[in-house]
Design a binder for these strands. Sequence first.
DNA 1: TTATATTTTAAATAACTTTTGAAAATTCGA
DNA 2: TCGAATTTTCAAAAGTTATTTAAAATATAA
Lengths: 168, 168
Amino acid sequence: MTYSEAKAQFISSWGALGSHWGINRTMAQIHALLLISPEPITQDDMMEQLSISRGNVNMNTRDLIDWGLVERVLIPGERREFFTAEKDIWKVSTQIIKERKKRELDPMLKLLSQLDNIEGDKKDKELKQFKETIGGIRKFGGQADKVLDVMIKADENWFLGSLLKFFK
Amino acid sequence: MTYSEAKAQFISSWGALGSHWGINRTMAQIHALLLISPEPITQDDMMEQLSISRGNVNMNTRDLIDWGLVERVLIPGERREFFTAEKDIWKVSTQIIKERKKRELDPMLKLLSQLDNIEGDKKDKELKQFKETIGGIRKFGGQADKVLDVMIKADENWFLGSLLKFFK
DNA sequence: TTATATTTTAAATAACTTTTGAAAATTCGA
DNA sequence: TCGAATTTTCAAAAGTTATTTAAAATATAA
């Protein structure tokens, strides 16, 4: 297999994987391209290599920056902007987890805590099941919250960091 | 807050959460309804409570069964089919993880192992970065694979099960 | 078997999301 | 400041996914 075949395959399947994760295909493909580019690249490079429009590149690059996965890089003597992606896959994952926790888990747990004080007959079967379900999810969510915090903080903490090196 | 307000909120936000996770809104809403229903319910109940069509209910219920989250229940003396969902949220999570691992992680790791033997000049910067990126993802994916296996097996293994009870 | 209740399927439609392309805004050197 | 290079925006077009509807298939009771 040649390099360019492998590259095309990688970009395409990273894109497909992304779409299972609520990330759009193009965004994931741009990310893939940046992951394998040793040097920062421009929006024109992305347009050309992925055959997509300028607007599309611009919007998705911006989203990747919002996710904290991509950075703008200034190259001395160059007027155009260059972009580069974090290459350490552990950091990429914790960054994604951090964002998704903030965007999804936290609001869900907040809502569930509101749903816990409802009025009604305590003997009612429906109400009982509702409270049990909500309670179960909250308990589980709370634990998940703690586990994710440990993972996120591992990068900022020497001891946990070296503990997690086993997994890296 | 009344029970019916809380119920509507829960169904709606479980649906919204699902759509962030590649599960469609309606499927997640049906799942939510089943999670809080103390007794098995029929497709007509779902149609009525969620205001959706028969076909939609049928397709999504079937998908939930494929995911292993919902079961058909036969009620003696009843001609219609009834449905019920697993209520233990730990089991729900491991079931989802198991399915997604099978559908997403496993194929990705398989592909990456193919992309590892490409021909080309070893001194080439592009090739070097490509190999590093692929290698990093494979290593990470392999570890994730192991962690997920531990979680999945915990339910089938007494020792790990009681260890994980701390988190339940 | 026949009539009826129930479930499944799939084509058509509706709703939603992504992509383009061109115009507007911005940046920066001369 | 002006003008060329570059980036950003956004309305329209294209593409995708979800939903309905109605007809077909299946199951059950009489």
